[in-house]
């Protein structure tokens, strides 16, 4: 008895060792590519800024202090860093708005594709991925061409006599939202499609058969079934849109900053690397909190069974 038990324990230990060895390459990549750089950023946020960028190896909390407070350069009075906090808050709002809009447009799109015949599904999916072939910057400028004051929409409306003054769309939050929704839409459609493809459409029929209207079938049967796709899509859209840099830069102009632009500013013209590093860590922290909150709330209401 004792002998077999010890043998079993030994086998189990060997098994665990094998598993660690097998996952070692992945762990090394994660350590080098993800944890390592993040640690460097974390360390930088506690150092002092150098006069021409870079950092001086002198510990300081100034970077973190500047995230939340600002010190008047003349009389050293301390006040809340309204600018930083409002930019952070704006970024969160725009990211949530983008996630919501991509869901509103992405859900019917994914449903449409999933309900096609297997052959035409491949074609539709292919069309969805086409925007990825083009550089993000070029796509941003393309949107600019559509919505700027002399752009397609305004000139069409004006030649139709519907408006006399061009509608100001460029350099507004609207422009940023349009751009981010457009850019991130495939990231919502693809995971939604992946879970809708597995959806058993006979369940939809069963719903109709049991007196559920189209809306009730959507709410009570389809959405609970594709919840994993909704979670994955929302995460994939929320995270990059919160840290968005190119779209707010091109479509929001200099005035409508998002936190990504703010961070870039610190590492560039601002020459305040510790502040940039502290802002970056803050952003990571916000993402983590948002994710934990989201997964807990959206994940639990469907029951543990899937």
């Amino acid at each position: 008895m004792e002998h077999t038990r010890r043998a079993a324990e030994k086998a189990q230990r060997a098994d665990i060792r094998t598993r660690w060895l097998l996952s070692a390459p992945a762990l090394v990549v994660i350590a080098l590519a993800s944890v390592g750089p993040l640690l460097i950023v974390l360390v930088y946020s506690f150092l002092s800024p150098g006069p021409y960028g870079d950092v001086i190896w002198k510990p300081s909390l100034e970077g973190w202090f500047n995230v939340f407070f600002s010190r008047d350069i003349f009389d050293d009075t301390v006040s809340f860093a309204d600018a930083h906090l409002s930019i952070l808050w704006r970024s969160i709002k725009l990211a949530i708005g983008t996630t919501f809009l991509t869901f509103v447009f992405g859900f019917p799109t994914a449903y449409f594709i999933a309900s096609r015949s297997p052959r035409s599904r491949a074609i539709w999916l292919f069309l969805i991925t086409i925007p990825f072939w083009t550089n993000l910057l070029i796509r941003a400028f393309a949107i600019q061409e559509v919505i700027r004051n002399e752009g397609i929409i305004n000139s069409l409306l004006m030649s139709a006599g519907l408006i006399t003054q061009p509608i100001q769309m460029m350099f507004t939050d609207f422009a940023i939202m349009v751009g981010m929704t457009y850019v991130h839409l495939p990231l919502m459609v693809l995971p939604l499609y992946a879970s809708m493809e597995k959806l058993d459409f006979r369940l939809v029929e069963a719903g109709y058969d049991l007196y559920a209207t189209r809306l009730a079938v959507l709410r009570r049967i389809i959405i609970p079934q594709v919840r994993p796709g909704i979670i994955a899509g929302s995460i994939l859209v929320f995270i990059p849109s919160l840290g968005s840099y190119v779209i707010p830069r091109v479509l929001g102009g200099g005035r409508n900053l998002m936190v990504g632009n703010l961070i870039e500013l610190q590492f560039g013209q601002g020459r305040n690397w510790p502040l940039g590093a502290a802002l970056s860590i803050t952003l990571v922290f916000i993402v983590l909190v948002a994710l934990a909150f989201y997964v807990r709330n959206v994940g639990k209401s469907g029951g543990s069974h899937g």
Partner: peptide, 21 residues
């Protein structure tokens, strides 16, 4: 009439029970 307005119910071949309920 659409199916949800017919006083007719179906037992499906594969049952089509709702797995999340």
């Amino acid at each position: 009439l659409p199916p949800f307005k017919r006083p007719v119910n179906t037992v499906f071949q594969n049952y089509a029970l709702f797995p999340h309920m």
